[in-house]
Design a protein around this nucleic acid. Structure first.
Lengths: 113, 113
DNA sequence: CTTCGATGCCTCGGCGACCGATGCATGGCG
DNA sequence: CGCCATGCATCGGTCGCCGAGGCATCGAAG
């Protein structure tokens, strides 16, 4: 499992990206992330729900209660326009840092003493 | 400037990568990071020194006092073998998360409703 | 019916990180 | 001497993680 800081940095963009594919709910998001990461990212519920609540508080997602096919209650989340904008911004920031790191890593190989 | 969490996630790998190119010291590392990121990452000293001290405490870098050409005191940092190993691990973790995000972003474009 | 596990939601609190503000010392310059 | 640049460091507010724990419902097994 990645370092805690990396989890923190990727949790919001990843949740937004999952929701950009269509509405979903807690448990399913957990599974979606595990699939996308091929098991490398395994979040606990204790970190997902606070993220979801923060996103809702900030207007990046909308939430509404619904029912599963078997009748169980679920809280469905949908990404908002502001959420899509935030996702794009997070993506740009991530890619900027990624390029910086690649440059630093590349230099290591080149400058290998 | 990127979100705080992204700074947190990239600071350690970046400092290690800079030091992997050769020994350096606080102020110069700050400039090296600014160059590598083309100004996108501008750290304050208040975040760099704690990172450096943590790395030293954990044995990922060695520190020693020296003097600049003009006679001023500087604390030079050198990466250790453990530091290079940690750098490689951070790099793997980063790339793993990066692939996950790319997959998630790609799906957005493909599944665009 | 009762018990068990899976689904599905949530909160609490310790820990640790960022980072703006602030402080201190030295050396060069006018 | 006064002032700026270099160069090191800490403090404290604020915020996020995430393991542990809690609650409710449903289906199946005994």
């Amino acid at each position: 499992m990645p370092a805690r800081e990396l989890i923190a940095a990727s949790s919001v963009p990843l949740v937004l990206a999952v929701l950009a594919r269509g509405e979903s709910y807690g448990y399913a998001i957990l599974q979606g992330v595990a699939e996308l990461s091929e098991g490398r990212l395994a979040w606990g519920e204790g970190m997902l729900y606070p993220v979801l609540h923060r996103l809702e508080r900030d207007g990046l997602v909308d939430a509404s209660w619904g029912r599963s096919e078997v009748g169980r209650e679920r809280k469905y989340y949908r990404i908002t326009a502001a959420g899509r904008a935030a996702l794009a911004r997070h993506r740009d920031e991530w890619l900027g840092v990624h390029r910086t790191l690649e440059r630093a890593w590349g230099a290591i190989g080149a400058a290998h003493a």
